[in-house]
């Protein structure tokens, strides 16, 4: 059974006047352990799709099922809780909490889940070490470079072992070296922890590393390419 299913997903703005289709009849399945990129030109609906899957936005029509649960059926509070326990987010502009250190940022989701403080700390340390930031534990985001901040964001998304990670153009603000470094880390975690990754991106380097490339044009599915291993 796919971990994520979208069924005839529509997102229409100004439906009553001049309708603008952000997503158009989009049905996709994502299996556990996938390393998938959503590609397409600007305005093709990549971010909208990720927001729908992440429960941050609601479709005009259609459904999103996560592990068999239709997220539209969840109440607002339950949906937030569902996100907390099932989905990891990596944003284009890192979106770390500026008043928390790298270690605290990575611990944040586990603390919100009320996990045991000792195991939370151990896991946060482990993930920060995996992303190569063991020496920046107590640095605030303002003291880190863009690449380092994005690695903290990835560590934060992964630390609580979510069912999948949604990454919206994670390399867009990074230089080439930092981007490759980040991709290496995510590919490694995908392999070692069977973590499902879904990226939206324009970045050719990300597309090259992905095993499945979903192309959207004008909100509709244009191509769904699974690369041979």
């Amino acid at each position: 059974m796919p971990i994520i299913q979208t069924q005839q997903l529509f997102k229409i703005y100004n439906e009553d006047t001049i309708p603008v289709y952000a997503l158009r009849d989009l049905s996709l399945d994502f299996e556990e352990g996938e390393f998938t990129t959503i590609v397409g030109p600007s305005g093709s609906g990549k971010t909208t799709l990720l927001n729908m899957i992440g429960g941050l936005d609601t479709p005009t029509r259609g459904d999103v099922f996560i592990d068999g649960t239709n997220i539209a059926s969840l109440r607002k509070g339950d949906l937030i809780d569902f996100r907390l326990r099932n989905i990891g987010f990596v944003f284009q502009s890192y979106n770390l909490i500026p008043v928390l250190t790298a270690l605290e940022n990575v611990s944040l989701i586990m603390e919100l889940q009320n996990l045991d403080p000792k195991s939370t700390r151990e896991r946060a340390l482990q993930v920060l070490e995996e992303v190569g930031l063991a020496d920046k534990l107590h640095s605030k985001p303002s003291e880190l470079s863009g690449g380092q901040q994005q690695r903290v964001a990835v560590a934060r998304a992964l630390a609580s072992r979510p069912k999948f990670v949604l990454a919206d153009e994670p390399t867009a603000n990074l230089d080439s070296k930092a981007a490759m470094n980040l991709l290496d880390i995510m590919a490694k975690l995908n392999e070692e922890e069977s973590m499902t990754f879904i990226f939206s991106t324009h970045d050719q380097r990300v597309i090259e590393r992905a095993r499945r490339v979903v192309t959207l044009v004008d909100g509709a599915l244009h191509e769904d390419l699974v690369k041979a291993k």
């Binding site: 509070g77 937030i80 809780d81 907390l84 326990r85 987010f89 944003f91 909490i97 989701i109 919100l112």
Partner: peptide
């Protein structure tokens, strides 16, 4: 407001 949005999207309940 953006920070609030991040926290809620990450899973912090609004009442918290």
């Amino acid at each position: 407001q953006k920070e609030f949005a991040i926290l809620v999207s990450l899973g912090m309940k609004r009442h918290i």
